[in-house]
Simulated scan of single mutants.
Amino acid sequence: MVTRKDKSQAMIDKILVTASHLFVQKGYEKTSMQDIAQTAGISKGAIYHHFQSKSDIIFAVLKQRYQLMEDDLTNWLKTTEHLTGKEQLKAIFQFSLESQGAYRNMLDEESFDAEFMLTMMRYNLRIGTPLIADIIKKGMNDSSIQHIQFPDEVAEAILLLTNFWLEGSMFENSTERIADRIYFLQFMLESIGLDIFDETLIKQILHRQIVKKK
């Protein structure tokens, strides 16, 4: 027997799936509540019954995506256990680059307020910090990474710099500035013994930025 609670959850899921697809295709700013309702085949009233605003929907969509990302990262770690810490750390940047394309496409970060960006940072750090820190510690134990005095803080810095400073809309993000940032990040990490940004990865990041601007 389908309960009212089941029907309510099914409607929420339908709204979030529809909104997620539209945010990726059109971007958050260009997607209206009417677009979501029309594509889902429901009324705007049905949406407002569950979500007060479009920003509430994007919060819910991103929360789901972060949960899925956490599951994907956990599974990825199991398949890469045979790698050294340094190899695994290099590989996770490649994995992140490939998995976050659609997630980035849905966001025009200039459209969001400080609370939204802070929430994104907190989700990112909550999921990523222990994972990156553990890989750094693994590398120190297997001698593929030299001793780092503050692995947890290094992990936080890497996440903030790569996910928000490197190519985020909160800062000037011309191709030239991003190139300068990534080479600085490469220099900074190498200075503490983390030579994990090779030229192939740098070229991929710069190529993605060029495609993104077209």
Rank of each mutant, 00 (worst) to 15 (best):
S96K: 07
L97F: 08
L97K: 07
L97I: 11
L97P: 01
E98N: 07
E98Q: 01
E98D: 12
S99W: 05
S99N: 06
S99L: 00
Q100M: 13
G101F: 13
G101P: 04
A102L: 14
A102Q: 13
A102Y: 07
A102G: 12
Y103L: 14
Y103T: 14
Y103S: 09
R104D: 05
R104Q: 12
N105L: 15
N105Q: 15
N105S: 15
M106C: 14
M106N: 12
M106T: 05
M106Y: 12
M106R: 06
L107G: 06
L107P: 09
L107V: 13
L107W: 04
L107H: 12
L107Y: 11
D108L: 15
D108N: 15
D108C: 14
E109K: 11
E109A: 08
E109D: 12
E110H: 14
S111K: 10
S111N: 10
S111M: 10
F112R: 02
F112N: 02
A114E: 05
A114T: 11
E115G: 04
E115H: 12
E115I: 10
F116M: 03
M117C: 14
M117H: 13
M117D: 12
L118W: 15
L118Y: 15
L118F: 15
T119A: 12
T119C: 10
M120W: 09
M120S: 03
M120V: 06
M120F: 06
M121T: 02
R122H: 08
R122E: 10
Y123Q: 04
Y123W: 13
Y123K: 09
N124V: 07
N124R: 07
N124L: 02
L125W: 10
L125V: 05
L125C: 11
L125D: 00
R126M: 13
R126D: 14
I127T: 13
I127R: 08
I127G: 01
I127H: 11
G128M: 03
G128H: 07
G128D: 01
T129H: 01
T129L: 13
T129Q: 09
P130N: 08
P130G: 09
P130E: 09
P130T: 06
L131A: 00
L131S: 05
I132F: 05
I132S: 06
I132T: 04
I132E: 03
A133K: 01
A133Q: 02
A133W: 11
D134Y: 00
I135P: 08
I135F: 02
I135W: 01
I136Y: 03
K137L: 10
K137S: 05
K137Y: 08
K137D: 01
K137M: 06
K137A: 06
K137R: 03
K138G: 00
K138I: 04
K138E: 01
K138F: 04
G139I: 02
G139D: 06
G139V: 08
G139Y: 02
G139T: 08
M140D: 02
M140K: 05
N141G: 03
N141V: 09
N141R: 14
